[in-house]
Write a protein that binds this DNA or RNA. Structure first.
Length: 553
RNA sequence: GCGCCCGUAGCUCAGUGGAUAGAGCGCUUGCCUCCGGAGCAAGAGGUCGCAGGUUCGAAUCCUGCCGGGCGCGCCA
């Protein structure tokens, strides 16, 4: 149990005792850091929730809760105050902070992990851009988001697999083949074809492309693009358990697509109309029914989407997360309907819509676009900003709000740039620990973990603030996981770095006066270093032990 | 027209029931004998789109309106 969980349990126990049985719960009380330091280290609204059931004024109840906590927490509770409409503000003793730090140190690398109350088998599908061109810069947001989300969910205690759905079938792929052949012949690409320069490169790379069969060329070109996409993403720190081939859904007899359709037939959710095969998605809340197979016998993309959905269920995933672009939000209703039609629970299919990325430079906003082959690739963006800055900036905002990426700021190698600010704090700690020496650090850690530093000096406010920020980490991970919100950890990393910087400013660490003070502060610094590294790691951002000392440009 | 998302400081955005609403950037003013100045501090700056409602308490929940984005093919 973490220190905060212990505190919460004490509040809940006191609450339950006051309420007696029978009375309604009125919701779980909060135990949170109040906005202002004057309101205590932690604050609870338990008394206000209890008031209706107990039938006494909230402030009176708060007093009684405070008394009860003084009993149960003993010396850990320095004092309490009743404030405002009935808040109970808890001021904790230095000993509580020392114990809390010991807990963080004892947890080691596992600190903050495993908080999932109901572990699930989750498949995260993300990026899944068509293999008809390079990964564009804007896809860097999808990649960073899906990857960070997968890391966070895994750390939180879920079993996570990650997939890229490779659209290697269908008319877009054929168009790529036709475009390659046209370029090989020195011609313009056909109407609606791909105009990017990479098509010319493909034409050069593929032998005898000028005389090739478009389908065959398409297949080869898609293979080459797939390699490039994979390489770009790997460079970005993004790997997959599987690139799931759409074409494979048509392999075999019966194929997965046929099997899914057969199941839908059997359940009575399909019908023929105007020669096409329809899925009655309106039964499950969609606006209109959707075609699975066109009247010409060709399957729609929806047909393979449904089969893919079913494949994920077959493979035992209890939850599917799909990261889609904003232009795909119209598919949410039909996919959820398909899920339900197949006999699944639509609640277990979550479609996370990523809003657009705009790149801002010199105050000008430019939406990168793939049209007419004029685009900036993710590779070019990484060349420009580096992996760390690119990922950090892409992860600063909630997925459902559009993102303005300030290229000028992201390029800066100074503390104005948040990613450097966080990394700098980490490097600074590393440098300090290096100076302290291995043995001193090891001794300090052992003493802090065992509670034997012998420190009697009162804690500095900055030490309390920093410790509380560390203690908040497990809950932050939980929020980031449950709300599919990696950006919370981006903010957390920045806040933690800020609190460390304030601590470093106010509290001398090495050579600090007073018995056990240096040891305690070294231990606190180590815990901070580990937590910064962990938070950044969950975002896919590196935590270097040293930053280049000189900066030019 | 219908559906989904968004509207919070000059800009970009956190914050989805708690107290006097936050951060980064930008702006203003300061700080280098000192564990990394690639740093630090202070300050100015907000009717939380508008109007009702629920609640002891609303940026947060409900309803309506206004503004913006996206989507509404037997396209991919």
């Amino acid at each position: 149990m973490t220190p905060l969980q212990h505190l919460r349990a004490a509040v809940e126990d006191a609450s339950a005792a006051l309420r007696g049985d029978g009375a309604a719960a009125g919701g779980a009380p909060t135990v949170e850091r109040p906005r202002r330091d004057g309101f205590g280290d932690y604050s609870t609204n338990a008394a206000m929730l209890l008031a209706p059931a107990v039938g006494r004024p909230p402030r009176e109840i708060a007093e009684r809760l405070g008394d009860a906590l003084r009993e149960s927490l003993g010396g850990a509770l320095e004092r309490y105050e009743v404030a405002g409409p009935g808040f109970l503000n808890l001021f904790l003793a230095d000993g509580w902070f020392a114990d809390a730090l010991a807990h963080v140190l004892a947890a080691g690398d596992a600190f903050g992990s495993g908080g999932a109350s109901a572990p699930e088998r989750i498949l995260v599908e993300f990026v899944s851009a068509n293999p008809t061109g390079p990964v564009v810069a804007a896809s860097g947001r999808h990649a960073a988001y899906g990857d960070a989300l997968a890391r966070i969910l895994g750390f939180h205690g879920h079993e996570v697999a990650r997939e890229y759905y490779l659209n290697d079938a269908g008319s877009q792929v054929r168009k790529l083949g036709e475009s390659v052949r046209a370029r090989a012949r020195g011609e313009e690409v056909p109407e609606g074809g791909y105009e990017g320069d990479y098509v010319i490169e493909l034409a050069r790379e593929i032998p005898d492309a000028a005389d090739g069969d478009p389908d065959e060329l398409a297949s080869i070109a898609v293979g080459l693009m797939y390699e490039r996409i994979k390489a770009t993403l790997e460079r970005y720190g993004v790997t997959y358990d599987r690139f799931f081939s759409e074409r494979s859904l048509y392999d075999g007899e019966p194929s997965p697509v046929q099997r899914a359709q057969a199941q839908l037939d059997r359940l009575g959710h399909t019908y023929r109309h105007d020669g096409a095969l329809w899925l009655r998605t309106t039964t499950f809340g969609d606006d209109k029914d959707r075609v699975l197979e066109r009247s010409n016998g060709e399957p729609t993309y929806f047909a393979s989407d449904v089969a893919y959905l079913e494949s994920k269920r077959d493979r035992g995933f209890t939850r599917q997360l799909n990261v889609f672009g904003a232009d795909h939000h119209g598919y949410v209703a039909r996919l959820k309907a398909a899920m339900e039609a197949l006999g699944g629970d639509p609640e277990t299919l979550e479609i996370l819509i990523m809003r657009l990325v705009h790149f801002v430079e010199g105050g000008e906003r430019e939406k990168m676009s793939k049209r007419r082959g004029v685009f900036t690739t993710l590779d070019e963006l990484i060349d420009e900003l580096g992996v760390d800055a690119t990922r950090f900036f892409m992860l600063q905002r909630s997925h459902d709000t559009s993102l303005d990426l300030d290229l000028d700021l992201a390029r800066k190698q100074s503390s104005e740039n948040p990613v450097y600010y966080v990394q700098y704090a980490h490097a600074r700690i590393a440098s300090m620990l290096e100076r302290a020496g291995e043995q001193v650090v090891a001794d300090a850690l052992a003493a802090a973990e065992a509670g034997t530093t012998g420190r009697r000096e009162p804690l500095d406010p900055a030490e309390r603030t920093l410790t509380k920020k560390l203690l908040a980490f497990p809950a932050e991970v939980g929020e980031a996981a449950d709300k599919r919100a990696p950006h919370r950890l981006t903010a957390y990393a920045l806040e933690l770095a800020q609190d460390f910087t304030a601590f470093y400013r106010d509290c001398r660490v090495l050579g600090a006066e007073g018995e056990g003070v240096e040891a305690h502060r070294i231990a606190l610094s180590v815990a901070t270093k580990r937590t910064i590294a962990r938070a950044l790691g969950l975002l896919g951002v590196s935590a270097p032990d040293e930053m280049a000392r000189e900066h030019d440009a």
